[in-house]
Design a protein around this nucleic acid. Structure first.
Lengths: 210, 210
DNA sequence: GCTTATGGATACTGATACTATCCATGACAG
DNA sequence: CTGTCATGGATAGTATCAGTATCCATAAGC
């Protein structure tokens, strides 16, 4: 398969494929002559994965590269790969809240994690984001929305459980790792859109005239 | 309050505040003389809201502007404002999938919505994203992950319900509208980080040695 | 009166994700 | 075997986004 065919198969423009090759997201094709390379099925799949992460999930290209490198390095422990996927989903956005809001948020989140018996590293990127977010809700006068934080956590824990069950069903470690990455990242898009649809549906009849 | 004090109160640099003023995200202060304006508490709150949306939720500045305009136009029906917040969360990313994957995804999503009795407009932006995402899962060989789509929807519907209950508790329409926007947008960040923490915790003991 | 901050305008920056152009070579059709 | 087209590789250009930086005339506040 040559680059033009790869482009047609995946609906990605040739210059974009060249860009991904340059950036090292896509392995080079096998050179049969100085200006002729052939690409295979792995390239098609890899390219589809890249597009899904970039286009659907909005992951930065540089991060996709990191994730793919980690996927290819099958020596890396699985939790390292998960950590990488997690970092891909939590850009280093920090928000300085008022001290009270931040303290209250930290306390609430710490309590939540303790009560649920979760094992979470203090350095987990999502932890900081969660605290910031809870603090933001407070700072914006939306205490009532996060009063049910535990109920949120309950539902979230529910689907996370069978998510992990489904992923664990993979026979090989490589497949498992790939499932983890896809599940973690695309799963967020999935849940987000389900939530919006649920919101639209539930709110429709309740507020028809407000 | 002058711009310098506003900056200190919110921890946003003066040039950034000026930028938001230019872009129309923040209403101009009251001019007491050609080069002296005073800002009040509304500015502090508005600025905090802007930062939360931009920094935490990653909403583009142009979209924040739209949302705020919609919030200020209290003549606009509530479901219009919800739609706007939804559009803020679903950037127009489209992914061309294979036809089979796309058809299968459409069928699965249509069935889901029907089975759950959801009322969803066919033009809902989240609907397209959901179909694309499900199709991407298929195209990437992760059918097993979306086999439980209904279970996902179940959990999602659960927290969406009390989310809407919490928001409905607001006395005035203005407060309701603001809660809807904040809840919809920051809620996504909240759920996403909760999910990552749950994943980390649940997966830790399961895959310690893989 | 002197330093500092301000409003307003305009210009510049850095990051990101592509696109476009060029060129020498090679594949393939007729 | 020859003319057209695609390709690999390199380099340069573009659009968007979210600020920053600079300037200036004016005004606060000590």
């Amino acid at each position: 398969m040559r680059i033009g065919e790869l482009s047609k198969a995946t609906d990605v423009p040739v210059p974009t494929i060249k860009y991904y090759l340059r950036e090292g997201l896509l392995p080079a094709g096998e050179l049969s002559s100085p200006n002729q390379a052939s690409y295979g099925d792995t390239h098609v799949r890899r390219l589809r994965l890249i597009r899904a992460l970039v286009e659907l999930a909005g992951v930065p290209v540089a991060t996709v590269k990191e994730i793919l490198e980690s996927l290819d390095a099958d020596t890396e422990p699985l939790h390292e790969q998960i950590g990488r996927a997690h970092r891909a989903l939590t850009p280093t956005r920090r928000l300085s809240a008022t001290e009270e809001a931040r303290d209250a948020a930290t306390a609430q989140v710490t309590k939540l994690i303790h009560d649920r018996g979760w094992t979470v590293e203090p350095s987990a990127p999502a932890l900081a984001t969660l605290i910031d977010t809870v603090a933001a809700f407070r700072a914006l006068g939306q205490e009532n929305l996060i009063a049910h934080l535990d109920a949120y956590a309950d539902s979230v824990e529910r689907f996370t459980r069978f998510e992990i069950d489904a992923v664990t069903a993979n026979p090989t470690r490589d497949q498992l790792a790939e499932s983890v990455v896809i599940g973690t990242i695309l799963g967020e898009t999935l849940i987000a859109s389900l939530r919006l649809l649920a919101q639209e549906s539930i709110s429709a009849d309740r507020w028809k005239n407000r």
